[in-house]
């Protein structure tokens, strides 16, 4: 069935935008600081309902083993919720990305929304049929004075494949900055990059 002209135009515009800003071949899947194994995921099989791998790497201050596990779990959950809301979840294609930043402070959400083409799938949302997670890794560095975790840097890496008009492997990596107040971890800052490349052996539908 021929696609509507408006969608073809929009796809071309998005491809151009990706080429200009995202770096068509700007990265491979190796060597990331959040990686937990040296092997490439270029051939990894998509895993349905993939769970995030979250682990505490460094602690400034003191934190018991039990609390380390709790911090890894809770920070990992916050990051994973953002992965789902911003990139992986929901129906595709759709017109709007919606609220892609759960767990962010009001100010951080405002900043992230301003950068939504990077901090979410806003650029692709109308031109893909679906996404499949390839890798979800979170490594946490904890600030824990007086044995109480107060802040954390979540070094993350999310790799996913898109299907549809734009079939790409997307690699999002960087840091989310969190503080723990009133028992909840909230994201107050971010520093991230994204790269995309065509998927090997896959042509756009």
């Amino acid at each position: 069935m021929p696609r509507p002209a408006s969608r073809r135009t929009s796809t071309a515009a998005v491809l151009l935008a990706l080429a200009l800003t995202a770096g068509a071949c700007s990265g491979d899947d190796d060597g990331d600081e959040a990686s937990d194994s040296p092997s490439s995921d270029a051939t990894a099989q998509p895993a349905p309902e993939m769970k995030v791998q979250s682990r505490v790497m460094t602690v400034a201050g003191e934190l018991s083993k039990r609390k380390r596990r709790v911090v890894a779990r809770d920070v990992g959950a916050v990051v994973d919720r953002w992965f789902d809301a911003a990139y992986l979840g929901g129906d595709y294609p759709r017109k709007h990305i919606g609220d892609a930043w759960p767990g962010f402070t009001v100010g951080a959400r405002r900043l992230a929304k301003r950068e939504r083409t990077l901090t979410s799938n806003a650029l692709l949302v109308d031109n893909i049929d679906g996404v499949e997670a390839v890798r979800k890794v979170v490594r946490v560095d904890v600030f824990s004075p007086k044995r109480r975790p107060a802040g954390a840097t979540a070094r993350f890496r999310l790799v996913y494949d898109t299907t549809g008009d734009i079939a790409r492997r997307v690699d999002v990596r960087g840091r989310l900055l969190l503080t723990r107040t009133q028992g909840r971890w909230r994201v107050f800052g971010f520093d991230m990059v994204r790269s995309t490349r065509p998927r090997k052996g896959v042509e756009a539908s």
């Binding site: 995202a22 770096g23 951080a108 900043l111 971010f190 991230m192 994204r194």
Partner: peptide, 8 residues
């Protein structure tokens, strides 16, 4: 490589 950063 586009970069997004911000601190609230």
């Amino acid at each position: 490589v586009p970069r997004a950063e911000g601190v609230d």
